[in-house]
Amino acid sequence: MNPNTTQVAVVAVVGGFLLGFLDFVWIASMPYPFAELGNSSAVWAVAAFGFGYWVRTGWLRAAAGAAGALVVAVPSYYLAATLIQGDDLAIMWAPTALLWMAFGVLAGVVFGVGGTWARGHGWRQVVGVALPGAVLLAEAALHARDIGDPRYGRDSLWLLMINIALAVAVVLLAGGRTSVRLRGLAAAVPLAAAGFAAFRLGGFG
């Protein structure tokens, strides 16, 4: 059964709050390199994809809900930072936070719609299934650039392998049928190249 508009709005607000708050808790409590997943923009994009995948149909609701969830997640993240490590609460509305909210709107629209596409048919389904894997591979490429840099040691290699493993796993989970999974994995590679360029353009890595 598809969720109605009220359910979508409630899940967007509550889910966004939990995403941001628990993301900081994850960073503060998990050992490295797994803690670094909390600093991953790709992971938040995958969360937006999961929201759209849950919505199933209605790309406008999926886009608005996923974007809203990521926007709510930003101040929630900084609230957790205030409560856990005593950061200044004013950072919740600082320019940096507003910039992350803007990125959240963009990622929410793209990956929220991608989540509904993954439930569909034809080329849209393949692209939808590929998107979460592609963004994780794009972030893996950022880590690959740092391999060999003495400042990072083996950290970048670990993060590279974690991102690749997650990319494959999420495509396999979203794809359903074997044929869709295989096409999704294939499509994720060129989409990852575009995602890498977008990361660089946005000042990431």
Rank of each mutant, 00 (worst) to 15 (best):
L22Q: 03
F34N: 06
M30S: 10
Y53V: 06
Y53W: 13
W44Y: 15
F24I: 06
G38L: 04
P31K: 08
A47H: 02
S41P: 09
Y32P: 03
S41T: 13
G52D: 05
M30R: 12
P33T: 09
F21A: 10
A28M: 14
V25S: 01
M30Y: 10
S41E: 11
F21E: 03
M30W: 12
V25D: 00
D23M: 10
G38T: 03
W54S: 05
A45Y: 01
A47C: 14
N39S: 10
P31N: 11
P31H: 08
E36F: 15
S29Y: 13
A28S: 15
A28F: 13
A42D: 03
E36W: 13
S29W: 10
F49C: 06
G38H: 03
P33H: 09
P31G: 11
V46S: 04
M30N: 09
D23Q: 11
E36A: 15
V25G: 01
M30I: 09
I27D: 00
G38P: 03
N39F: 09
A47S: 13
V25M: 04
V46Y: 04
G52M: 05
I27A: 02
S41M: 13
S41H: 12
A28R: 14
Y53T: 07
S41W: 14
G20M: 04
A42I: 06
F49M: 06
A48C: 07
F21I: 06
M30T: 11
F24C: 05
I27Y: 02
A45D: 05
W44L: 15
I27E: 01
F34V: 15
F21M: 08
F49P: 00
